[in-house]
Every structure is written in C-alpha cells, then in structure tokens.
Write a protein that binds this DNA or RNA. Structure first.
Length: 583
DNA sequence: TTTAGGG
DNA sequence: CCCTAAA
C-alpha cells in the first residue's frame, strides 16, 4: 500500500476573502508531505484540526495516480452526496460528544452554520488561489511547474469560462496541460462564478460532472464546481510530482528537481518521502527518499490512464473520510468495551487539538503515523466509513446515506451496504431549509457491535421550534409525561422518542440553570453554546421547572433556581404562561 | 413499556 | 444520544 499525502497548513497572514468566515481561521494551503502508503489530505474546520482522507490504492502505477491524487473526488456525487456536510461541521464544532446541551440550534444558528460552511469553503478556495503567491509555497509551485509561464487563458471562448475543457473525456485538451494551467483555471473560478448566471453555472456543472442538475442555488453550484476544480488542482499537483520526479532537498530553501526517466513499471512505485521536522519560513520542506517516477516527458501518462477505461476503476474506489470526532470516540469506545479490534482509530484527538503547524513528528504521532495507518486499514478493512460530506440531502435519502462499518446483513444496512454511484447520483441535494422537519435529514451511523446487533447513532439537532413545542408540551401536560407529549405534539417527528424529549428537557433545565450562575463565563468559553437557546426560552424553562419539579420529587432544580424571577407563589396555578413567550 | 438517571 | 434499572 502506498500512502501519499498533502499537508494542510495555516497561513501566517490569512488572506482576506469574501467569505463569511469570521475568525479568519480556516485558511489552508496544501503541501505534499509524504508519499508512503496512501492518502490525501483535506481541509477540515479548524476545530477539527488536521484531517486526512485516505484513499486505498493498490501499489500499481495507474491506481496510484488515480487514487492517491484524489481523482475520485472529481465525481461529485461520490464526494458530496453522502450526507450533510454542514452537519458534520456543526457537530465537529460543537463537540457534540456527550453533551446534547450544546447541540441545540436555533434557526438563526442553523443558518449561521451554513454560512460558516460556505465561508469555510470559500476560505479554502481563497487560499488555493493564493497558493501561487504565497510566500512559502511559491517555490513549491514554481518548481513544480517547470518554470512554465502561466498561460493566460483569459476567459473561455464563450465569454464565460467553461469548464468543459477540463472534462476527463478530453485528455488532450487543456486538462492535459501542466499544473499551472489547471491552477490558473482554478483561480479563475471564484471570481468568474460570481458573475455567472444560473445557466452558466449549470453548464459548467454539467460539463464538469457529466450530468445536469436542477439545483438553482447558485452558491451550491459554485461550491461544487469549485470543489471539482480543487480536486483537479490536487490531481494535477500530484501528477506533476510524479511525472517530474520532484526531489526536495532538505538542505536548500528551494527545492531541486531531478527529472528521472526511469519508467514506471506497472509493478509498483516506491514513492516515499520523508518530511523534515524543520520548518523553513513557516513552510515545511519535503524530501524524497527514493523516487521512481513516471517518464518525465510523457505528460499524458496520468491522463492516458484515465482515458483508457480506467475511469470506472477510479470511480469505484472507495473514498474514506475521517470519521467525525464523535464517531471516533465511540468507535474506540466500542473497542474498549469489546476488545474486538486490535487497534482503534489512532488519530483520535485527545483534549488538545492538532497543531495546525507543527512538526511532522507531532503529526505523525497524533494523526497518521505508519502504525496508525495500519490500524486504520485494519479497522476499515473491506468496509468503509462514509461520513456525511455534502450539502443537505433529501429527506427520503437520509436513511440511505447510512454510514456503515462492517455492515453485514442487518436490516438497517440492507439497502445502503454499497453506495453504488448510480444510487448516489440520483440523490439530489437541496439547499437547506429551516423548516421544522429539516432535522429529519441527518446522518446515521450504524455500527456493528460485537454482539452482532447494530446500533444506530443519531444526532439530530433540536430546532428552536422543536424546543418550543417541547416546552409547550411540558407546560400543558407536565414533566414526566413524555409519552403523552410525544404522542400529542411530536407525533409527526418520528425521530423524537419520548426518551429524547425527556433528555432534551433535562438538558434544557441544565442550560437554564447554568446560565444563571455564570453568564459571562459561558460567553467566554463557548460562544456557540451560549447562543443556542434564546434567553426567553430558557426563562420559560426555568419557570416550568419551578412549577413542575423535575421528577416526582423536590430535589429537582431547586438547586439552581435561586436567581430566577420569582414566580408568584401566591397563585400556584399549574398552567404558567402557556403560550406567553411564544415567538 | 415507560420513566428516571447515569454515562 | 445511548443504556439500563426500576417501576
């Protein structure tokens, strides 16, 4: 197995992009860091730290080219439609593990998080644009492209830039060019798309992905196209490295290249590189230990492969995404419990985050060291983990977008055991809507316990309206009547069980209490969490908590009710401001 | 089955 | 959100 990676690196001086990214955080650039085993790297939200996506690849030349370079990501369905990326972001960001308290989203925040997603993607894009100018990456890129001047493609023949030229079907077209070309095209992308009409976007989408879409959300289209191009960039970068036999000398600030004409026999490529621990001007250097390369004068090697019926092969390769933190934790939990697997996913992060810029030793230890890779592969053996990564998908599809690990024949897995491209491609994502039942779309992870029973993991964020409904329910029927409330108010939400209601109420109580005690503290600590639930709502929860002591007892929330606006005890009526705070 | 409560 | 004991 070969591994190949790109390293994400945070820029010293975040570029200003038009993104809505507020913290200037998610700025990434890519670096090739190692090629040993298989993998490619993808930008993750800052909170998530370094992320790696490994693509399994046979140590064959052609597959190396196709897989390792993330070629498969050119298939948008495969890439996006497996779930809801925005949820992934939220979940990761909000540390959903263990505390549902933090996972309530107001509609505003749902919207905000979508914006965040957009911002993140834009931020990524922005930096990719900046790669050509970046202080530390310049050498990297310049050297990589053999000093070819960047061709000035200007705008496409039709006045608008057309990605049709990049189609895989036309290996001799511009896609066949060097990386500079692709990069340049990519750079063109963002600004160009800003001015493009929905028709233009549709055209580009169709050209790029081979199929039309009815999506009218321009932002969505832009993102997809952008990602498609980004993948082209990654592919192209890697291809050039392979083709030219790039050698990075650890002792030189500038990289040297030695073109090797050794032919890549179909046997295998030994393409391993070692990364320096040192960083030079904030930029880690890369060194190749040994490198057999493709013939440097055959620029079409990579593309020929694509053109020779290998596409299917590429497309059908499984793509593995780093599981969400929650998944990881629970996976390792499983392991702990049942001692089933020899090793857990070892890139689980502990309390501390991955350093964005750090020694590779750190990275390796924390993330994708050799041993961890082995573990992963063993962990993932055969099956794959498909973690949602894309825009929200239709309700009906959500159940099919099931992440499966080692799915055998449990009923739950039946129709989702294999994520056939066709199947996936039929799923039409749609822009997020903030309706009540939007929470219906979700990711479910099914994992098999050792007992053979599959356990489903949901995480459905509570919308504000759901919370309001719950509160209404409690005020009407009282605390503890969860089945009643469920039946009468949540009958349509199949995903909310009475236990969920109970849990949610408990969390609401907790939230309403903690807020009283440490207002400021919360604000400092976790911005997001503090704004989840409007104060008015929490206030109402508190009042209800007074009237309906939590379980059948007094021990309820007396402990945390002190500061509340005193409820008129004179009128001990049981129906408090039922709909008063509504809205 | 439902609820309470721990994790 | 999951699990389990207790009702």
């Amino acid at each position: 197995m070969l591994r190949y990676g790109l390293e994400e690196q945070k820029l010293d001086t975040p570029k200003n992009t038009s993104s809505t990214l507020d913290e200037g955080a998610n700025m990434f650039t890519y670096k090739l860091i190692e090629a040993e085993g298989n993998g490619s790297l993808f930008p993750y939200p800052e909170d998530e730290g370094i992320g790696v996506e490994y693509l399994l690849a046979e140590p064959k030349c052609n597959e190396l080219v196709g897989d390792v370079l993330g070629f498969e990501t050119l298939n948008p369905q495969k890439f996006f439609s497996v779930g809801d990326f925005s949820h992934g972001v939220e979940n990761d960001q909000r540390k959903i593990d263990g505390d549902a308290l933090d996972s309530n989203l107001t509609q505003e925040e749902e919207h905000a998080s979508l914006e965040f997603l957009d911002g993140m993607l834009e931020g990524t894009e922005g930096v990719l644009q900046g790669m050509n100018k970046g202080p530390c990456c310049e050498d990297f890129l310049l050297d990589t492209k053999l000093a070819d001047p960047v061709p000035n493609l200007e705008h496409g023949p039709c006045g608008g830039f057309s990605f049709g030229n990049l189609g895989l079907e036309s290996p001799s077209s511009s896609f066949n060019g060097r990386d500079s070309g692709v990069k340049y095209m990519y750079n063109q992308n963002s600004s160009l798309h800003d001015n493009m009409t929905i028709h233009g976007l549709h055209d580009d989408f169709k050209n790029m992905f081979g199929g039309g879409t009815s999506i009218k959300d321009t932002q969505w289209l832009k993102l997809r196209i952008s990602f498609g191009l980004q993948n082209l960039v990654e592919l192209d970068n890697g291809l050039n490295l392979l083709k030219q036999g790039v050698t990075f000398n650890e002792n030189e600030a500038k990289s040297n290249f030695s073109s090797s004409n050794e032919f890549c026999s179909s046997a295998s490529i030994s393409f391993s590189s070692v990364v320096n621990d040192k960083t030079v001007s904030g930029c880690q250097q890369v060194k190749n230990d040994s490198l057999q390369t493709l013939s440097s004068d055959d620029n079409r090697v990579g593309f020929c492969i694509l053109d020779s019926g290998e596409k299917d092969l590429l497309v059908t390769q499984k793509r593995l995404r780093k599981p969400t933190r929650r998944y990881i934790e629970e996976a390792s939990e499983q392991k702990g419990r049942y001692q089933s697997r020899k090793c857990a996913i070892s890139y689980k992060r502990s309390k501390d985050k991955f350093p964005h810029v750090g020694s590779h030793e750190q990275h390796r230890q924390a993330g994708f060291g050799a041993s961890s890779l082995d573990c992963q592969q063993e962990f993932f053996e055969g099956a794959c983990i498909q973690v949602p990564f894309g825009l929200p998908v239709q309700e009906g599809c959500s159940k099919r977008n099931t992440s499966i690990l080692g799915c055998q024949e449990s009923e739950d897995c039946k129709d989702s055991g294999s994520l056939v491209p066709n199947e996936i491609s039929e799923m039409e994502p749609f822009p997020a809507e903030s309706q009540d039942d939007m929470s219906e779309d979700d990711c479910i992870t099914i994992i098999n316990t050792q007992k053979g029973r599959s356990r489903r993991k949901h995480h459905m964020l509570w919308t504000l309206s759901e919370v309001m409904k719950l509160i209404d329910g409690v005020s009407q029927y009282g605390v503890g009547r969860w089945t009643e409330i469920k039946r009468l108010l949540f009958s349509s939400s199949t995903h909310r069980t009475s236990v969920d209601l109970k849990d949610k109420w408990r969390n609401l109580l907790r939230a309403s209490c903690t807020r009283l005690h440490n207002k400021r503290e919360v604000e400092q600590g976790r911005k997001h969490a503090s704004h989840q639930i409007p104060q008015s709502v929490l206030g109402r929860v508190r009042e209800l908590a007074l009237i309906y002591p939590y379980p059948r007892g007094r021990k309820s929330k007396d402990t945390c009710t002190p500061v509340v606006s005193p409820i008129p005890s004179s009128t001990g009526k049981l129906v408090p401001m039922s709909t008063a705070v509504k809205g």
